[in-house]
Design a protein around this nucleic acid. Structure first.
Lengths: 334, 334
DNA sequence: CTGTTAGCGCATTCAG
DNA sequence: CTGAATGCGCTAACAG
């Protein structure tokens, strides 16, 4: 039923030239007469020939595939990063292999290794769970890797990070400026470097303003809508006097709004809330969510560009790339 | 700096056996003595050898990669489908290549062809924009394809679809039962088969109940949060007397809630809203969104399972797979 | 049970 | 400007 895959040999035979000539025509490199080239391209079209990237990858050691590993594909943050990455990749004829670990530690390294075996030219990962040593050992013999929001020294790893601490500081400072003194924070249950920095920014800002008790007003859960929802319920039961909540990310922040509403607390009148990321939803929620904006699209874009640059110049040491944040005020705060 | 990729030859030399024997050990097929097998596996471990899937694909014609093409990765609907697909694939050692077309018609076929060239064993697509002929021509010489929510007859294409018409009917019928007579609908701007069926279900139900004017209360925009927001604004300006809105999908439905709030209409008191899909967000919005649930995870899972079944039995004709829907009532309706 | 030969589809040497 | 040989890393077919 199906036509057999047409190979370069078929084209060569049909066009009455050698395979090599066909190769030259389609890759348009090496000298070739315009006439034969056109002729060959016609035949290519006629037969519907598409060079097999598998075979190409085989001897160029270059697959034109990039791997992107994200922890939770249903958190809009990551798809937005992925869009930036895919657009940048697409522009250079690369394909992005997007994979999801569902925040399962065991899947992280597995996924990375699978991607490596699959022959990707490089990878980008948000991996937080994997042990540093294991990750380094993997990097020893793998393609170049971009690691986001983590500090790992390795010749084969390039770092890209958001200034998480400063972002958290902006949020908490705004609470304090607008008169809040009893401020809580929703954190990610799993340890991750970006989360650590956000917590540090939170506590540091409180202390700088002479406010104590920050530690006890932390409430940890999964970094999701329902995680934020649950964490908020617990937080408000323990500390009913809280008037402001800083959430690890927007998903948690949105869950927090929902929890407040259900508990009869009005946002922002009773409780002000600030999230982190500025996913699309944040501005469309009711009330809309104030947040610390991260340029997600640029993040994906820069990660890919940086990876591609590495291919040209593998030896070069590339300094960590820093992304700034911006405080966006909406209806969930004054 | 980087260790050179270790190949099967390295392992063979180190273990003092032939490449073939190594191959047998790692694929654990063919007879091989337990002793040599264990020895080889030790060496594999020692050297950190990982077989190149590229090379394997080269001569087995089997890459263990599946392609999944979605129109909008930032619509939570698709990531949830992707999770189902990835889990099902992962269980069978397959990897899913997830790609996003950003609803750009020009990218659809391109993406599919790229995936095919990349050597995926099969593809799943929500492609709506691509012309039927072009798609069929592509299918002629490609790997098996699962097409979701579209009706195309082709030996190489298997269909999977949601009962969109019935879903829409349930929603509109509920409006009518609860006393609404002036009902509007937010539709997808781009023609797509699933959207057509939902519109038909809407109109048909109105007519069955002797209600007219459905046609004029359609408002089209992009199937996104902001699309729903804009479409609702226009709809309510033209028809201020509307008391119920059925949205093409949840993203539009959520945007509709936001628009109503901003226009001073209370949901559900002034206007009742029902969406389609039941993405996670729907239940966490304020007010939470009533919707027509589609089992997204199962959708991804079934698509992959169906694809894998096709590999074993390429000739078999597989009947279209139907997915039922369920009306979920929440705060945005009575 | 194990080794040898061949070839997947293509690009990279080299010769003409 | 074009063609022939060689090999990428691996598995399938055959020998032993």
């Amino acid at each position: 039923m199906l036509k057999q895959r047409v190979t370069i040999a078929d084209v060569a035979k049909e066009a009455g030239v050698s395979k090599q000539t066909v190769s030259r025509a389609i890759n348009d490199k090496g000298e070739i007469s315009p006439v034969t080239k056109q002729h060959i391209l016609d035949v290519v079209d006629l037969l519907g020939y598409r060079p097999s990237r598998v075979a190409q990858a085989m001897n160029t050691n270059h697959s034109y595939m990039l791997g992107l590993v994200v922890p939770d594909i249903t958190n809009q943050f990551f798809p937005e990063v992925a869009r930036g990455a895919q657009d940048a990749a697409y522009a250079q004829n690369y394909t992005v292999l997007l994979t999801n670990t569902d925040d399962q530690a065991s899947r992280e390294l597995d996924t990375l290794e699978l991607l490596a075996a699959q022959g990707v030219d490089g990878m980008i990962t948000f991996s937080h769970q994997a042990e540093e040593d294991a990750l380094k050992r993997f990097a020893d013999s793998s393609q170049p890797i971009i690691v986001i929001n983590r500090a790992i020294e390795h010749p084969n790893i390039t770092l890209l990070r958001v200034d998480n601490r400063a972002g958290a500081q902006k949020a908490v400072a705004h609470f304090i400026t607008t008169g809040h003194t009893r401020i809580g924070m929703l954190t990610n249950r799993d340890f991750s470097p970006s989360q650590l920095l956000r917590v540090q920014g939170y506590q540091q800002t409180l202390e700088e303003h002479g406010l104590s008790g920050g530690e006890s007003r932390l409430s940890a859960d999964a970094p999701t809508l329902s995680g934020g929802y649950r964490a908020t319920q617990r937080l408000l039961e323990l500390h009913p006097d809280i008037t402001a909540i800083f959430a690890y990310n927007d998903m948690m922040g949105l869950g927090a709004i929902r929890a407040c509403v259900e508990m009869g607390r009005s946002v922002p009148d009773d409780i002000a809330i600030i999230g982190f990321d500025d996913i699309q939803l944040a501005s469309m929620y009711t009330p809309s969510l104030s947040t610390v904006r991260v340029d997600k699209y640029a993040m994906g874009q820069k990660a890919v560009e940086c990876l591609l640059r590495r291919f040209d110049n593998p030896a070069a040491h590339i300094d960590p790339i820093e992304l700034e944040t911006e405080l966006i005020l909406r209806e969930s705060t004054f």
